[in-house]
Write a protein that binds this DNA or RNA. Structure first.
Lengths: 149, 149
DNA sequence: GTTCTTGCAAAGGCTTTGCAGTTCT
DNA sequence: AGAACTGCAAAGCCTTTGCAAGAAC
């Protein structure tokens, strides 16, 4: 069984709070959400940890993972796992869905959307009597920079 | 940097052989390829190992991983990593590309293709001056069986 | 006999968990 | 005070690697 959207065991009170940032104010979670929204996007947990350390010198990697699970559960962040198997995180909720063009040379991520593809995916699922809840399209290849070399 | 299609270090002679099954005949690699082609598909390394053990009671998991890398390098198998982060393998080469509908309830994989989506993906990449080499579309949701419940 | 292949055990990399101490309300 | 949050270290899981023994050519 595969869980795609992991809802963390939110503390009881957190579920009642509209901002979903937790039952209590937490400097770490706020910092991590901020790293996520102000950073370049598509960061790994380790990269997020590194960025967070600049603001909170003693924050541990476990806290980062916990906060990320939490934020994903709240819909404030989204996790996705590219072909290298290392999870990346991006802010979610306020941002539109998008697919990824991933450069296999420099590792950069380009966000892209094609409404038509989105529509066709729904059709494809329907054709198989499949009820889609989320999807993920990744195109691997060379970005314009790397292809030029 | 993200390597999507990992070409294993093939032994020198293996590269010259057309069947690409290795420089030498290997019962294990043949068995694993057979598990792959005759099995239900989308098996994890562990599942493949379990199936292989029935034929070769002493085969080790390392051999399975090595063989899988090898077969992927030869184009005889394809690896893909769904949202749970655990690699799955399927026979390749003789089979057409396809996308996956993945049931988040029972974990089943449905293979599907939509030629139009394929075309639009190329267009989408081109629009970003991106040179695609492979892509992966996964739709998560409920299969008809699970949706009915 | 040389080179490839294998099993085993150990190590690696990413992620989660247990626990005791700390913080928030 | 009570529940939530945190850092640290340990454990977990999947995968790879080192090495000595075995097999193929």
């Amino acid at each position: 069984m595969i869980i795609v959207i992991t809802m963390p065991k939110l503390p009881f009170k957190a579920r009642e709070k509209s901002d979903c940032l937790g039952a209590r104010r937490s400097t770490r979670r706020e910092a991590i959400l901020d790293v996520l929204t102000s950073g370049p996007g598509h960061l790994s947990a380790e990269e997020i940890h590194k960025a967070a350390l600049k603001r909170l010198p003693r924050i541990g990697i476990a806290t980062v993972y916990r906060a990320l699970k939490f934020l994903c559960g709240c819909g404030k962040a989204a996790e996705f796992i590219p072909a290298d198997g290392v999870a990346r995180y991006e802010p979610a909720g306020s941002r539109a869905h998008h697919d990824h063009l991933i450069c296999t040379s420099c590792g950069c991520f380009i966000e892209a959307v094609d409404p038509e593809i989105e529509r066709l995916q729904v059709r494809l699922a329907a054709r198989h009597r499949f009820k889609p809840s989320s999807h993920k399209l990744e195109i691997y290849g060379l970005c314009s920079n790397c292809a030029g070399k």
